[in-house]
């Protein structure tokens, strides 16, 4: 059964299917410049063509949003997702769909029903483009999260002492990640001391200070003491002018000083440890 606006176009396409796929694949392959194998591409395009022809032949053939196009949409989501993850451009991705138009024209000719078919392909091309953009956005926001994670390493300096070197801006999102990571590391390593080094933080304002203080209070609740190190002269003066008080929290100019303080409190004899290691 063939619905009205498409006349016998679908039947003609089915009859010329092999030739159609060959032409379509040639155009797409040229745009992808060999980065996907011909065999893979052939399979992918055949599936899509078959689904498109079935959908177009259905009663709702002109409406790409209808249930008849469910399978087509699913295949196009797969295609755009795959292309986006492999690093193809939106243009290269959309061409895979738009090129079907030319293949149909060259293979079975135009005729009055070609306009309706062309409209369907335009819609599907745009759908592919949108779904490509959605995947890219997901990829980017995942990367942003990974960066956040990467930028907050917690390192074990000694049995019982971990250090958290902060680099960059400590905004609320980052502060949350930092706090969780530090608390988890305290649990995992059973550490009593955490050194938070702020040498790499360009400015300490009330928000940064508040995040630091909250983290320190949370660490205390878990039985660990925090030492803040790396307070450079300009930061020290700014903190004083702002009126921020770190209360009884130990602060040291350098990470080395903070480590010595922690080791002293744990009762490690640094000189003895050094000679033990042949230093």
């Amino acid at each position: 059964m063939t619905s009205e606006p498409f006349g016998d176009l679908i039947d003609r396409c089915r009859a010329a299917e092999d030739d159609l796929v060959r032409r379509w694949r040639a155009d797409v392959a040229a745009s992808l410049r060999g980065r996907i194998s011909e065999i893979e591409l052939d399979k992918e395009l055949r599936e899509i063509l078959d689904a498109v022809l079935s959908a177009v032949a259905s009663a709702d053939g002109a409406d790409t949003r209808s249930a008849a196009y469910g399978e087509v949409r699913a295949l196009l989501v797969d295609l755009s997702r795959g292309r986006a993850l492999q690093g193809f451009s939106p243009r290269e991705t959309a061409i895979s769909v738009f090129a079907l138009k030319k293949a149909v024209r060259d293979s079975v000719g135009t005729g009055p029903e070609f306009t309706a078919f062309s409209d369907v392909i335009d819609e599907l091309g745009l759908f592919t483009f949108e779904s490509y953009a959605k995947t890219r956005e997901e990829v980017i926001s995942n990367q942003a999260e990974q960066l956040l994670e990467l930028a907050t390493p917690v390192v074990k300096l000694w049995q019982g002492v971990v250090a958290l070197p902060l680099v960059g801006t400590l905004d609320s999102a980052r502060a949350q990640v930092v706090m969780e990571k530090l608390l988890q590391t305290l649990v995992d390593t059973g550490s009593e001391y955490a050194i938070i080094d702020i040498t790499g933080v360009p400015a300490v304002d009330t928000q940064v200070a508040q995040h630091l203080l909250k983290t320190i209070v949370a660490a205390r609740l878990m039985g660990a003491e925090c030492i803040i190190s790396g307070i450079r002269p300009q930061i020290a003066q700014t903190i004083v002018a702002l009126g921020i008080e770190f209360g009884d929290i130990a602060t040291k100019a350098t990470l080395a000083d903070a480590l010595l303080l922690a080791l002293g409190r744990i009762g490690v004899d640094v000189t003895a440890e050094m000679s033990k290691r042949g230093l």
């Binding site: 400015a203 304002d205 009330t206 928000q207 930061i235 003066q237 002018a241 702002l242």
Partner: peptide, 17 residues
């Protein structure tokens, strides 16, 4: 100076927030 830069940047951060 570096100290004054840091002071001004910090003040700006407070006011912008």
């Amino acid at each position: 100076s570096l100290v004054d830069q840091t002071k001004l940047v910090t003040a700006a951060s407070e006011l912008a927030r």
